[in-house]
Nucleic acid binder design. Structure first.
Lengths: 83, 83
DNA sequence: ATGTAGACTCATGTCGACA
DNA sequence: ATGTCGACATGAGTCTACA
């Protein structure tokens, strides 16, 4: 799995866990609503600045978000290699 | 301290610890040499894709790099507040 | 509430060259 | 080996609108 796809999944999971809509998340993070949509579907790869904005609203550290992303990509990598 | 400045410091520290030149790091990461220079001096804020490229060459996880960045920014924040 | 589209601005990132 | 410059291409992110 590509990192931007994994990041999108992590972002959506965290957002739903907090009961936020894309609109609410975007508003509080100072981003566009449709841009959050792009990120969640892995169509755009966020910059480090955007990561910090989103993580603040989601109440989680950027490193924790990235750790989840790494776990997803690593798991997918193992799966593709049949391990 | 701004996150991009903190990231630049972390990047330079990791690179020097491994005895790499900016040229070698850039070549192995598939980036431009002068762009690594910009990142280390905090003039540009890397995207998540670039983070993954660099961390692979440096042999460290992205989340570990970001954790160092967070520690630097948090330490500087405490310092500016006199805590 | 979400996905998609176009048009747009500006930052990211490339490339070649020079101190 | 690094910093800097200019020109350039691409991608991030905005804004408005429609399904």
């Amino acid at each position: 799995m590509q990192p931007e796809q994994a990041f999108g999944e992590v972002l959506r999971e965290l957002r739903l866990q907090r009961g936020l809509s894309q609109e609410q998340l975007a508003l509080e993070a100072g981003l566009q609503r449709n841009y959050v949509s792009l990120l969640e579907r892995g169509h755009n790869s966020a910059s480090i600045k955007t990561l910090f904005k989103l993580s603040t609203v989601l109440g989680v550290s950027v490193s924790a978000m990235i750790r989840s992303v790494e776990q997803k990509t690593a798991a997918s990598s193992r799966r593709s290699q049949g391990i």
